[in-house]
Computed example of a mutant assay.
Amino acid sequence: MTTNPSAPRGAALVTGAGGALGRAIALRLGADGFAIGVLGRESDFLRETASLLQAQSIPHRVLPVDLRDGTSIDSALTEVESELAPLAAVVNNAAIYPATPFLDITQDEYEDVVRVNQTAYFLTAQGAARRMVDRGAGAIVNIGSITFHGGWANLASYVSTKGASVGLTRALARELGPSGIRVNGVSPGAFPTKAEEIHENPAEYNRFVIDRQSIKRRGTDAELAAVVSFLVGPDSAFLTGQTINVDGGWIME
């Protein structure tokens, strides 16, 4: 296994790192001292994330992976450890979100969402934990969504998988805590990302969001990444099994 002296905190793997939130998380954790494995579908967006990491001299590897393929996920974890550093943190962030009325969702569409948003989270966390347990340390963060807490029309597949991420977070925190592995979640609110393309009227949706938030502005990618940074860092050493809503005060529970 290669130990990279320029990554004093070990390696962090971020799935879905080609998207806005995943990119912000990767850049923040890189700035925090982690070497970064950026994992996701092969795309210009993933390559852009890698370019930004390179520009900041952050050790990284680009890992184009189909998250529907469990073998590919495990191979990516192995590559991170062999090419970068021992795996210290994993952020399960990748997700797909087809907007389809519940009565029109096909079994194939539902199962596709489950494979990416739920099964891949399970397999990535499992593969990471198997590597972390012998070291007695590690942090896993599962990115959920406030849609689970409030429900959302036309997104039944997505919302149900995001609820599963909360359940997985709690179960793994209970089971892995004795091995020194902490597992927490983050439920983002309505951050202005590419996902908003599912809404027909962006201006109307923006007003909808602001009306429901206590903080009357949209959140930034960097603000979400800061919470993930906290959850994988030493200041949250006594925190596990929690899912934090980062939503400007939309959902309070």
Rank of each mutant, 00 (worst) to 15 (best):
A76I: 02
V232K: 10
A31L: 05
A222N: 00
Q213C: 04
A203W: 04
F230H: 11
G22C: 03
G151D: 10
A153P: 05
V14W: 06
T49V: 10
A76D: 07
G30H: 01
A203F: 08
R207Y: 12
V113S: 00
R130K: 09
A237E: 12
T161M: 05
I181F: 07
R130L: 01
A50H: 02
L67G: 10
A31G: 01
R47D: 14
D211M: 10
L29S: 04
D74A: 03
S179F: 15
R41F: 00
S187R: 06
L63K: 07
A237K: 10
A120S: 13
E196C: 01
K216Q: 15
D32Y: 03
N117K: 03
L63M: 09
S157D: 12
G40K: 03
Q107D: 08
A11D: 10
R170V: 12
E83T: 11
G151V: 11
V14G: 06
G189D: 14
R135F: 01
R182L: 10
A99W: 15
K162E: 04
D66I: 09
S51Q: 07
G136L: 10
I210D: 08
V62N: 02
V114A: 06
N117L: 03
A156G: 13
L155P: 05
V113C: 00
L53M: 04
V116Q: 00
F102G: 07
M252L: 15
S214W: 07
V159K: 04
L224K: 02
I73Q: 00
T147E: 11
T106M: 05
T147V: 13
I181M: 07
N92G: 08
V186H: 15
A153C: 07
D211A: 15
L46E: 09
G33V: 10
I58N: 05
A120I: 01
H199W: 14
I181Y: 06
V186I: 15
A164M: 08
G138L: 04
G18E: 05
Q126M: 03
I140Q: 07
T124R: 00
V141W: 13
A156S: 15
A89K: 07
I146H: 11
L52A: 08
D32L: 10
V227C: 02
S165N: 14
P178E: 12
A11M: 09
E197K: 15
A237R: 13
L52N: 05
R28I: 01
V14T: 07
L13N: 01
P101F: 00
V91F: 09
Q242V: 14
V62Y: 07
S43H: 02
I210W: 09
N4T: 08
R131L: 00
E253G: 13
V209K: 05
R130G: 06
F45S: 15
S157G: 13
N206T: 13
A128D: 03
S165C: 12
M252P: 15
M252N: 15
F238D: 01
A164P: 09
S57Q: 07
S179R: 15
G151Y: 09
A55S: 13
S179N: 11
V62G: 04
V133Y: 01
T147D: 11
L46M: 07
Q54S: 14
H199Q: 13
R217H: 08
A137E: 14
